[in-house]
């Protein structure tokens, strides 16, 4: 499989001269499976250019896996061109709610006055699914979800194919109220999803010095990411969901500091950027 990052900014799109290297679009990753199936992780503003790139070769079926329904993970949905193709079948997966079905919750955004087109009126065929902690087969991959610690119902995803695996936890605060270093793995939010994966895309919104002012906001500081990755024994960490206030230079400074403090390097920990491609095959994982 091959994963391509179309958006890795957190909270709010942040275009501009200070964010060109890592990008300003919010969360979206497209994963093309060996079977040819396409899995899209989140519908942040990065899904707009993804949809545009699909115009000449739109898959007949797309699985869109939403981690949650905060705007930075949903805002691009109305601009995802395959939604306006009547020959496309889009499966939307997202966290369950005891209050409203997934379709109704998404339609709160995709309806006037917030959006001119109603979700029920888009030409594509839409099927809604509650994300499951039971393994689900999509094409040649196995996909599993689990609820993770964030604000409101939120899941993370794990995709496995051909002995390779990735985990996607873009919004995650596993350290809330606890010191991760002291926690047994079974008591760490998201541990099971991330355990042993080749590549972990993980929330890295804050520098360690910024976190004390954002406790409980649902995001991680770099120390938390590193502790979590260590506990989960992941091979490579891709820092994701960059704070919209962090410039390219600031992100790189945070990465350098992380490498120094954790005695690691770019081969183990790197920053997500738009157009980043992660290729998984029998020989290993290549990030470009």
């Amino acid at each position: 499989m091959q994963a391509r990052v179309w958006g890795c900014r957190g909270s709010l799109a942040a275009p501009g001269a200070d964010t060109v290297r890592y990008g300003g679009n919010t969360s979206c990753i497209a994963v093309r499976l060996e079977s040819g199936d396409v899995v899209v992780l989140d519908a942040g503003t990065g899904i707009r250019p993804l949809g545009a790139a699909m115009v000449d070769d739109t898959p007949a079926e797309i699985h869109l896996l939403l981690t949650h329904l905060h705007m930075d993970h949903l805002q691009g949905l109305g601009f995802f061109r395959p939604l306006f193709d009547p020959d496309v079948h889009v499966h939307l997966w997202g966290p369950a709610s005891p209050v409203q079905p997934l379709a109704e919750r998404i339609a709160i955004y995709l309806s006037p006055p917030l959006f001119p087109v109603r979700l029920a009126d888009v030409p594509a065929t839409l099927t809604f699914h509650n994300a499951s902690d039971e393994p689900v087969t999509i094409g040649s991959a196995t996909v599993r979800a689990a609820n993770v610690a964030h604000q409101g119902p939120t899941v993370g995803y794990r995709i496995e194919e051909g002995g390779r695996s990735l985990a996607y936890l873009p919004d995650h605060e596993p350290s809330l109220g606890v010191d991760l270093a002291d926690q047994p793995p079974s008591w760490i939010s998201g541990h099971d999803l991330a355990h042993g994966v080749d590549v972990l895309f993980h929330d890295a919104q804050y520098g360690d010095h910024e976190y004390p002012n954002h406790v409980g906001w649902g995001h991680s500081a770099l120390e938390h990411v590193m502790r979590f990755a260590d506990k989960a024994e992941v091979e490579r960490v891709v820092l994701f969901h960059h704070d919209p206030y962090h410039t390219d230079d600031e992100l790189e400074a945070l990465l350098v500091d992380t490498h120094r403090r954790w005695n690691t390097d770019h081969d183990h920990v790197c920053l997500a950027h738009e157009d980043m491609t992660v290729t998984f095959d029998a020989s290993g994982v290549q990030i470009t």
Partner: peptide, 12 residues
């Protein structure tokens, strides 16, 4: 890969 044994649910 098998799930790690004993993962507790998020509410717990």
């Amino acid at each position: 890969m098998e799930a790690a044994a004993g993962q507790k649910s998020l509410p717990l």
